[in-house]
């Protein structure tokens, strides 16, 4: 099977990106796949706590100082077949940490021996986050039913699209997108609607229109709804996928839901480890279902809720 990169984002903090990343990784390891789980939240790394291990700061430092390979920074997790990369990158020169080090990091990451690499992108919509997201084979967004989380999801998607299309256009030599308009479309209080922005880009010419259409077509989002407390809320996944398709003209799949579960809270304070959480009867089948949908590119329809 081809090596796959999964990137998990969603914009808002605390939706469950880390929990889901760790559960997907545990699930894949259980299927005898070689898994590398990456705490891409390189400022606020917390994945290691789910496995009761410490981040390997010194070897990550050594990697950036070119004294060691990235494979030497892999941390054993206690789950067989599952290795973790985690560490605090804040101690590096702040000006360069964002771009170079991440660039180098991802380049080497892709060369590691693994069947699946799962990157927990952390919160936010910074350029590095968007780029890592766009680089992934599976672009996964996590939302809860809360309106702020949904709002952040739209913002994330919007920024991903703008980033992608703008890159594609400028790659083809079309760089004359008005900066004021770009600023405006990315701000929260738009003076220009997203759909008008897209029309405007398409209106620049036949070639541009094709680039925009192709770019949108290349984005496929896998939606996961988390912290579902009532069945009714799982329908939000259907709504969101429909809205992403209709309004943003991208491909969207609803990969499934994870219910709210108190046991998951214990992960964060270290009183439960990921494997024991994964084994819970309400959790394992859901993760199996969601992971399966993501791998296969299939999705949940209304009649399957």
């Amino acid at each position: 099977m081809k090596k796959e990169i999964w990137a998990i984002g969603g914009g808002k903090g605390g939706t469950g990106k880390s929990v889901l990343s760790a559960l997907f990784a545990t699930h894949a390891a259980g299927k005898k796949r070689k898994v590398i789980l990456v705490d891409g939240d390189l400022g606020g790394a917390n994945l290691h706590t789910f496995f009761n291990v410490s981040p390997d700061q010194s070897s990550l430092n050594e990697f950036f100082e070119k004294k060691t390979d990235l494979k030497d920074t892999l941390i054993d997790t206690g789950v067989s077949g599952l290795k973790l990369i985690s560490g605090d990158m804040r101690s590096f020169n702040p000006l360069s940490v964002k771009y170079i080090q991440r660039l180098k990091f991802y380049r080497h990451l892709k060369q590691l021996n693994a069947d699946i690499i799962i990157i927990d992108l952390g919160a936010g919509t910074g350029l590095n986050t968007l780029d890592s997201f766009l680089l992934a084979d599976k672009m996964i967004l996590v939302s809860t039913p809360e309106i702020t989380s949904i709002e952040n999801l739209y913002l994330f998607v919007k920024k991903v699209i703008v980033r992608k299309i703008k890159d594609m256009l400028s790659y083809e030599g079309f760089r004359d997108i008005d900066k004021t308009i770009l600023k405006s479309v990315l701000s929260n209080q738009e003076t220009i609607k997203f759909s008008d922005f897209i029309e405007l880009l398409k209106g620049m010419g036949k070639e541009q229109e094709k680039i925009v259409t192709d770019g949108l077509g290349e984005i496929q989002i896998n939606l996961v709804m988390n912290q579902i407390r009532e069945k009714e809320f799982s329908k939000y996944g259907i709504s969101l996928k429909n809205i992403l398709k209709r309004h943003y003209n991208i491909n969207a799949l609803f990969s499934g839901c994870l219910d709210y579960n108190d046991k998951i809270r214990e992960l964060v304070n270290g009183s439960a480890d990921i494997n024991s959480v994964f084994q819970i009867d309400e959790i394992r089948p859901s993760i199996d279902f969601i992971s399966g949908n993501i791998s296969k590119g299939s999705d949940v329809n209304f009649n399957e809720l």
Binding site: S96, K98, Y99, N128, R163, K166, K179, L182, L186
Partner: peptide, 9 residues
């Protein structure tokens, strides 16, 4: 605008 807001290295 993304390309400018990011220090590019």
């Amino acid at each position: 605008e993304p390309e400018i807001s990011e220090p590019q290295v």
